[in-house]
Amino acid sequence: MTSTGTFVYDGDCAFCTTCANFIERRIPTRARVVPWQFADLATLGLTEAECEEAVQWVGADGRRAAGPDAIGRLLGDSGPLWRVAGAVLRLPPVRLLAWPAYRWVARNRHRMPGGTAACALPQEARERLYGTTGRPGTT
């Protein structure tokens, strides 16, 4: 385990990499920002499947979070202004809205700025996450 948190993203996705580059350039954090393909997932207590489904946060204390919760934890470990944004993102009503928004972005990340066709989730992952209709919780 590291003395700081670790933020894990999909390094095969251009959109995710663009976002990670933004974090490294603009968000003052002590956290390691690393693609899951180059992370020691066993040491972090993560699986490939978890990392394919959402960004991950593993705190210095070993506590984990995924998706917008992971983003909130990363921001909470950053500079003062970003900490406020992280705290807001972790508020229950905001968190409730953040998950559907995160899933929509994940489903459409190949269409986002910086995204490419390679960013599209594999068909198996899309069906596992969103069912055959493409909407969460449906089959």
Score class of each variant (00 low, 15 high):
Leu74Ser: 09
Pro35Val: 13
Gly76Phe: 04
Val55His: 01
Gly79Ile: 05
Ala49Phe: 01
Phe22Glu: 04
Cys16Leu: 01
Trp57Asp: 01
Thr6Ala: 00
Phe22Asn: 04
Leu74Asp: 03
Glu48His: 00
Phe7Ile: 13
Cys19Asn: 15
Ala42Lys: 14
Val94Lys: 05
Ala60Gly: 05
Gln37Phe: 02
Thr18His: 04
Cys16Asp: 03
Leu74Cys: 09
Ala54Leu: 13
Gln37Trp: 00
Thr43Val: 07
Ala70Arg: 11
Leu89Trp: 03
Cys19Glu: 08
Leu46Val: 11
Val34Gln: 13
Pro68Leu: 08
Val58Asn: 03
Trp36Tyr: 14
Thr29Gln: 02
Pro68Trp: 12
Glu52Gly: 14
Thr17Ile: 02
Arg32Thr: 05
Phe22Thr: 12
Pro35Cys: 10
Ala87His: 11
Thr4Ile: 10
Leu74Gly: 00
Glu52Arg: 14
Pro80Val: 00
Leu91Gln: 09
Arg32Glu: 12
Arg73Asp: 00
Val55Ile: 11
Gln56Cys: 04
Thr29Phe: 02
Ala31Lys: 10
Pro68Glu: 13
Pro35Glu: 03
Val84Ile: 10
Arg30Glu: 06
Leu75Phe: 15
Glu52Ile: 06
Ser78Glu: 02
Pro93Ser: 15
Ala42Cys: 08
Arg83Phe: 06
Gln56Val: 08
Leu81Gln: 04
Ala49Val: 13
Val55Met: 13
Thr47Phe: 00
Thr6Tyr: 03
Ala85Tyr: 06
Leu91Pro: 05
Ala20Arg: 12
Asp10Val: 11
Glu52Cys: 10
Pro92Tyr: 03
Ala39Met: 07
Arg26Gly: 02
Cys13Trp: 04
Asp40Ser: 11
Ala66Ser: 13
Glu52Thr: 08
Val34Arg: 13
Val33Asp: 10
Thr4Asp: 01
Val8Thr: 00
Ala39Val: 11
Ile23Gly: 05
Ala70Ser: 02
Val88Arg: 03
Arg30Cys: 00
Gly76Val: 05
Thr17Asn: 12
Trp36Glu: 07
Leu91Asn: 01
Thr6Lys: 05
Leu41Thr: 12
Asp40Lys: 14
Leu41Ile: 08
Val33Glu: 03
Arg63His: 06
Thr43Tyr: 07
Gly76Ser: 05
Ala87Arg: 15
Ala70Pro: 03
Val33Asn: 08
Phe15Pro: 09
Arg83Ala: 00
Ile27Tyr: 08
Phe22Ser: 07
Val55Arg: 12
Pro68Asp: 08
Val94Trp: 00
Gly76Asp: 09
